[in-house]
Amino acid sequence: MDTLLIEGTPKTPTVRFDASKGLVELKGRSIPENSIEFYKPLVDWLESYAKEAKPQTQVNIQLEYFNTSSSKCILDVFKKLEVIHKANPSVTINWYYDQDDEDMLEAGQDYESIIRVPFKMMEVTG
């Protein structure tokens, strides 16, 4: 299955979904006016990946900013990962947040309480 690579822009994150490594990464900013269009290929990719998921999938979410429109799409991404996790291959979501950014930590904790996938809160210092 093809790796999904999307370069980041000032409004959209860098995407690296690599099935061969069991790696799902979002980094940067997610503040597009309409996030549905951006996230659709990501959700579609995960749907296909679910059929051939690696025994372990590592998810790295390192967002500097995201808007509320993206927050729903990110939840859709996590819901796909939850389906994979339920079917036995293990999924871990590493949620990175800046040490000064309590709002980003809280956002990760919000998702953690909604989605039944293990989360690790990863503080980034300096």
Partner: peptide, 26 residues
């Protein structure tokens, strides 16, 4: 506010324009 945000995040669909009803709560 946190509980309201999580409830809407979980149960309300995005509008075709991409709005989620979460902006003011956020």
């Amino acid at each position: 506010l946190k509980e309201m945000y999580k409830f809407i995040l979980t149960y309300q669909k995005l509008s075709p324009k991409g709005g989620g009803g979460l902006g003011l709560i956020d």
